[in-house]
């Protein structure tokens, strides 16, 4: 199982004010808040930890099919800027992040998986529906090409808890994948 999350740093600065009272306390543990306050680029650290939590959450929902909103319960540990781990209850997820000036992008996996395929890209179009269509098409095109499917037979459907699943000619595929977008950036990953 696999999950991903991207944060457009410019968009996040516009959309969210993590400096507002009580924001950090709702989202981050004391240890994580220390990481943020000790960090040279606090904005980047806030969204790096956030993307780790989100990506790990997406794997957790696939596993247990139960939604919840409590980012603080997902506890981040950083081994380096790019490598980390997120724990919740008795589960742990490995995270691998890409950090640029423009975005942070994290992929979370159950095992220390290296074989996944991931791709992020920039879009000028920021309309939510068009972005979502484009992103799905990017994923389907890649899967069709690599796994030798006819793209016309491929379809994405969401489960009741919002986990997207892939179907080929109405038959469910075991491919685990995840989609994310934020502002100008989108990304997909699949295993």
């Amino acid at each position: 199982m696999i999950g991903n999350d991207i944060v457009d740093l410019q968009q996040a600065a516009k959309d969210s004010n993590w400096q507002r009272p009580r924001f950090l306390d709702k989202v981050f543990t004391k240890e994580e808040q220390k990481l943020i306050s000790n960090s040279e680029d606090k904005h980047q650290m806030v969204w790096l930890l956030w993307s780790m939590k989100e990506a790990a959450y997406k794997v957790n929902v696939q596993q247990f099919e139960k939604r919840f909103f409590n980012p603080k319960r997902l506890v981040c540990k950083l081994f380096s800027f790019e490598k980390g781990m997120v724990s919740i209850d008795n589960e742990s997820y490995f995270t691998s992040s890409e950090i640029t000036e423009d975005y942070v992008y994290t992929v979370a996996t159950l095992n220390e998986e290296k074989k996944y395929k991931t791709h992020c890209f920039k879009m000028e179009q920021t309309d939510f529906k068009l972005q979502s269509q484009f992103l799905k098409k990017q994923l389907l095109t890649t899967v069709a090409k690599i796994e030798n499917y006819n793209i016309k037979e491929l379809m994405i459907k969401k489960t009741e808890v919002g986990v997207p699943q892939l179907f080929n000619n109405f038959e469910k595929l075991l491919t685990s994948f995840s989609l994310t977008h934020c502002g100008r950036y989108s990304g997909f990953v699949y295993l």
Binding site: A12, S16, R20, R22, K26, V27, F69, N70, P71
Partner: peptide, 30 residues
């Protein structure tokens, strides 16, 4: 609503109604 903004929704709800929502309660607020 993006999930970071869901934090804002919760903080706005707290301000509007002058209440505090613990994380255990927030967990269900989807």
């Amino acid at each position: 609503i993006n999930s970071a903004n869901l934090v804002d929704v919760i903080l706005d709800v707290e301000d509007e109604f002058d209440i505090r929502i613990e994380n255990d309660d927030m967990e269900k607020m989807v």
